[in-house]
């Protein structure tokens, strides 16, 4: 009986893992296949689709997405750091209210935020704002609460005694921020910035309202295309874009993100 249960458990685990990985494997396979259909009959390998990626058709939206995500990551990183610092570290009066205000966009679905923003822009006659500027503004609204929350968490975990130790050793406020506080919360800030970059780069529900022909992001270009055809070049686009995200994460990690979290020392 016990044996049967444990076999069932392992089977279900394997099945779920297969379910999780299957679509990823299928896309990778399709990106090397001459047709969009993936069969288990042997197929010839081709790198043709990856070659197609370098055309303007894919390069332009990629560069747009890259530009937007970079600006969004930088902006929401700086704003989120300042906001979290002021609220958590300086303990401003009314900080609870301010924090709930800053985090309130999190409880509104993206598609609703998207409608609201595009409606607002057309109401005030700023349709010319659509495309990159509107996308940046909307993505900052999306990313800022996440970044603020992440930085606030690392500030809340910051041992106030470290600050006091630096102070009693003669460090003034700016010196303490520079030498103690910022190095300590750096991992939190960097993961916030990475996260902001990724959610901007991959975003669909907000962007779908705000792009303009000729000024579209990569994911929106892809889904618009997907509605008509399952061209295998799409597989190549997707795989390449995932590889790009992995590179970004790797780079941020290298500068001293997540796993560089400093353990011990001040337990």
């Amino acid at each position: 009986m016990t044996r049967v249960i444990s076999i069932l458990f392992w089977l279900s685990l394997a099945a779920v893992l297969a379910f999780i990985t299957l679509p990823l494997l299928v896309v990778v396979a399709a990106s090397f296949s001459p047709t969009a259909t993936v069969t288990f009959q042997p197929f010839e390998w081709t790198f043709r689709w990856y070659g197609d990626l370098l055309s303007n058709r894919w390069l332009d939206p990629f560069l747009t997405s890259l530009k937007i995500a970079t600006v969004v990551a930088a902006t929401s990183g700086v704003l989120g750091l300042l906001a979290a610092y002021c609220i958590v570290y300086e303990r401003l009066p009314g900080s609870d209210v301010l924090m709930s205000y800053l985090l309130s966009p999190l409880s509104v679905p993206q598609i609703v935020k998207g409608v609201a923003i595009v409606l607002f822009l057309s109401m005030i006659g700023f349709q010319g704002f659509l495309g990159t500027p509107a996308l940046i503004a909307a993505h900052v609204v999306l990313a800022l609460p996440f970044v603020t929350r992440m930085v606030a968490t690392s500030l809340a975990n910051f041992d106030a005694n470290l600050d006091r130790a630096a102070q009693i050793l003669g460090a003034g406020k700016l010196q303490r921020i520079r030498h103690v506080l910022l190095p300590m919360i750096k991992p939190g800030v960097l993961s916030g910035v990475t996260f902001a970059f990724i959610i901007s780069f991959n975003n669909i529900p907000l962007s779908v309202f705000l792009v303009r022909p000729g000024d579209s992001t990569l994911p929106i270009t892809v889904i618009n295309y997907l509605e008509y055809s399952l061209d295998p070049v799409m597989a190549a686009v997707n795989v390449a874009s995932m590889a790009f995200i992995l590179v970004v994460i790797f780079l941020f990690e290298k500068i001293g993100g997540f796993s560089a979290q400093i353990h011990g020392g001040s337990k």
Partner: peptide
């Protein structure tokens, strides 16, 4: 992987 890639899969 992002939503598009998975949905495409």
């Amino acid at each position: 992987a992002g939503v598009v890639l998975r949905t495409y899969g």
